[in-house]
Design a protein around this nucleic acid. Structure first.
Lengths: 199, 199
DNA sequence: CCCAATAAATGAGTAGACTCATTTATGACT
DNA sequence: AGTCATAAATGAGTCTACTCATTTATTGGG
């Protein structure tokens, strides 16, 4: 007897995951990761503390769980916005602007998200998902570079890697914590131009 | 009555700092940061746990305290080695090779060091020292770029920033944890070339 | 030399992320 | 329905970085 929806067990898990995700999102947005305890998230999601760690192995994974969806959405937005731009740097900025803005909705959370992506330790789980998102973005960058400058695909891939490095450090650097998204984008634009133009 | 050496108090502090630095260096090198507890370091340095945190505000600062000297030395070595190189990329690799090797003496510690530099929170203390070291290295890079390519100083500074970003991510990326120093340097060289040559 | 002022050291205590032995719920099979 | 096997949930307990009220040491002045 296979019902349309999966079994009770599966539905329960989905429901808990949803409650946890939503609790984490709300609390992190309100107070910032560092001011939220895992116990708080558990309480708000109405699960035991142990249960929380069944759904996210660490507090860092919890942040990734809470934010990955937004980054995915930002990525699609960026792809759409970039499509119409002819100039390479302009296209790159259009592509990355939504990601930068997403990251900067809450500076501390955004920086912690990146920290978790690069320095986190979980092999599978939400970190892998985040890494895939980044890889996907890097591919989009490579495609833009290749199509707008006519560079060969290996060179485009190298440049894409550099572009991602620039974005990563711009968003992470403690020197930039007080900059707005637009200021960050200007700074990034300058570096992209430096890197992509002969002289 | 001003003796040659400072007062007993000052000498005691210096001595404790030396014991703590050395204990941290040894233990971190032996087991890696994550496998060493602050209590262990305190015991080995023969101070109380509370005392440890008088000398380094966090475990991360302790790592910076333990490693900054090595990085400073690596930087001087790099400057020496780069001096004789005419080619820009070759000079950059010579400059940065000692730093990369220093960082890779122990992969986990090296990555944690960088994590601490970028994401740490202490304003003054050993983190500032580490940031100054990085800034100094970036200046050396800028100087090399300016002198070897004839680029204007603003452009050289931008390129230096990019070069540092490439090094930082090369050393931090989880994808690179299994690469040797030489493999990392090759990968970096490729990216430097891509960025510094017109096409 | 003694005393007050100040700096440093101490270690029991706290907070918070995470674990794991036990309990509870679900599903499969008769 | 009843029984077993298995998956999931639970929360008391652990571990460890870090704090802070108390104690101890140093110094400079009378």
């Amino acid at each position: 007897m296979q019902t349309e929806t999966a079994g009770r067990r599966e539905r329960n898990k989905l429901d808990k995951l949803e409650r946890i995700t939503s609790a984490a999102r709300t609390l992190f947005a309100e107070k910032g990761v560092s001011e939220v305890t895992t116990a708080e998230v558990a309480t708000r999601a109405d699960v035991a503390t142990g249960t929380l760690f069944l759904y996210a192995k660490t507090k860092g994974e919890l942040l990734l769980l809470a934010q990955n969806a937004s980054y995915r959405e930002a990525h699609s937005e960026g792809i759409q916005a970039a499509a119409s731009k002819k100039d390479c740097v302009a296209a790159l900025i259009s592509l990355l602007a939504p990601i930068v803005r997403c990251n900067r909705e809450h500076v501390e959370n955004g920086r912690t998200y990146l920290q978790e992506v690069v320095f986190g330790t979980s092999i599978e789980g939400y970190r892998s998902e985040a890494i895939e998102l980044m890889t996907g973005t890097e591919s989009s960058v490579a495609e833009i570079v290749a199509s707008r400058t006519g560079a060969e695909s290996t060179r485009a891939a190298e440049l894409a890697h550099v572009v991602m490095a620039i974005m990563f450090l711009s968003l992470s650097s403690p020197q930039n914590v007080d900059l707005t998204s637009d200021q960050l984008l200007s700074a990034m634009k300058l570096q992209f131009t430096t890197v992509l133009t002969a002289d």
